[in-house]
């Protein structure tokens, strides 16, 4: 970790898209704090892992206490932590619904709220939230997931307005299906059906996700806020 590099926080950083985002941010000159409930596979001089549960307020407060104490400032937040529950609404338990809402929506809210408190000290910040193409597709079989990510999109737009005066932009991106653990439980025919509804008929790549993130967090993107960009052409 170096004092000269801006600090980025990536939630859900232990694997998949989150881990890839951390690696790219480091290459692009950031120091990165990653958090997840599990340990991370990523080992790098510019990476620090802090175990945290984004759906738990005391855990998030503790995460930011550590960031404030050890780093003092924060430039970028990537709210990537997310879980899915693929089931027909008639078979979705209230526990599963709560879990998805807590991690995806409450987690994004808590991390953004505490992060923005730190970002406003320097009148600069970039918050990028992860949504999904399942929102505009109103994808059947994903009621809890789509409801949570719809909430994330609404939150993105309201936070964009509320945090604008502190120099903080808040945007979201909605990836198409990407080869990660999150879609491992989804049948190949269902994935093919989703891909066929896109203008660009292929699975998304983690590089596609980072491309949009990199655009949103550039200092020059200070006039872009409250926007949602979907991958694949929906």
């Amino acid at each position: 970790m170096s004092e000269n590099r801006p600090l980025a926080l990536v939630t859900g950083s232990s694997r998949g898209i989150g881990k890839f985002i951390c690696e790219k941010l480091i290459v692009d000159g950031y120091d990165v704090v990653g958090c997840s409930r599990n340990a991370s596979e990523l080992v790098n001089a510019h990476y620090q892992h802090i175990a945290a549960d984004v759906s738990d307020q005391s855990s998030v407060l503790n995460l930011f206490k550590q960031i404030r104490k050890e780093h003092g400032s924060l430039s970028v937040i990537i709210n990537n932590a997310g879980i899915a529950s693929m089931n027909h609404c008639l078979l979705t338990t209230v526990d599963a619904f709560d879990r998805v809402l807590n991690v995806n929506l409450k987690g994004t809210f808590l991390v953004s709220r505490e992060g923005a408190k730190l970002m406003r000290r320097h009148n600069f910040g970039r918050i990028v939230n992860l949504s999904t193409v399942a929102v505009p597709m109103s994808l059947e079989g994903e009621s809890a997931y789509v409801a949570s990510k719809s909430g994330v999109e609404a939150l993105t737009k309201v936070l964009a307005r509320e945090l604008a005066e502190y120099g903080i932009t808040v945007n979201a991106l909605g990836p198409s299906p990407i080869e990660t653990d999150l879609i491992k439980g989804v049948g190949a025919d269902k994935i093919a059906k989703i891909v066929n509804r896109l203008a660009l008929k292929r699975l998304g790549r983690v590089e596609d996700v980072y491309n949009v993130i990199e655009f949103f967090i550039r200092p020059a993107s200070d006039y872009i806020t409250g926007q949602v960009i979907y991958l694949g052409g929906i």
């Binding site: 005391s58 503790n62 930011f64 206490k65 404030r68 104490k69 408190k117 406003r120 000290r121």
Partner: peptide, 17 residues
Amino acid sequence: VLSVEQAINDELDSEIV
């Protein structure tokens, strides 16, 4: 309120909201 909260948390090494 946020400035007061941050100043206290910095001073006391706390997580008060």
